[in-house]
């Protein structure tokens, strides 16, 4: 395992906050939704730093995954909690790492089961290469290029830290 200094979580978080703040004025009626687990940590930081104390929801996409038939149910599914009305809202969807795009696809499906948002903005702490679906982040704290056998992992909730893990 190696921790590379260029993948600094606090710098990526600052970039992300700045990038999302620039987009906020166009979205007056906004709310934040974090994807369990890392995305919720990042979403909590965003909620604290963004103006206006936006409402915060959490999403566990286990029931929407496309690999249920292969890997089964995640043993620790947490209930999704969306304590606000999705209809007509501008949603800031937050995850820690954007990789294949499958998590975001599942999250969008779940969000639409709660209602019809006015828009969804995808904000991720780190985006890496390896997309398998046509998904792009609107705001990203950092962009990294990794080998196929490497993963970037976030630890948290506070402080956030990033490390690159090499798979065997």
């Amino acid at each position: 395992m190696t921790a590379s200094p260029e993948y600094c979580a606090s710098a990526a978080l600052e970039n992300l906050i700045r990038s999302v703040t620039d987009r906020l004025p166009c979205c007056p009626d906004s709310a934040i939704i974090g994807i369990h687990t890392g995305g919720v940590w990042v979403a909590e930081h965003l909620q604290q730093q963004l103006p206006g104390r936006l409402p915060l929801g959490t999403l566990d996409i286990s029931f929407y995954r496309d690999d249920f038939s292969h890997v089964g149910l995640h043993p620790e599914v947490r209930p999704s909690r969306i304590p606000f009305d999705i209809d007509g809202r501008h949603i800031i969807l937050v995850d820690d790492v954007l990789y294949t795009g499958r998590t975001v696809r599942a999250a969008l499906s779940e969000i639409f089961d709660y209602g019809r948002p006015a828009s969804v903005l995808l904000a991720v702490l780190i985006q890496r290469d390896g997309r398998q679906l046509p998904v792009t982040a609107d705001c990203a704290g950092d962009t990294v290029k990794l080998q196929d056998n490497e993963q970037i992992k976030l630890s948290g909730p506070s402080p956030l830290s990033l490390e690159v893990v090499r798979l065997p």
């Binding site: 566990d60 286990s62 029931f63 929407y64 249920f68 149910l73 043993p75 620790e76 599914v77 947490r78 209930p79 999704s80 909690r81 969306i82 499906s109 779940e110 089961d113 709660y114 209602g115």
Partner: peptide, 23 residues
């Protein structure tokens, strides 16, 4: 306990507007 915990997360599905997941 794992069944009870999974059921706990299922309760969230039953109270929202679209009471259905694609599992």
């Amino acid at each position: 306990v794992s069944i009870l915990d999974t059921a706990e997360s299922m309760t969230g599905v039953t109270v929202r507007s679209i009471k259905k997941v694609p599992l």
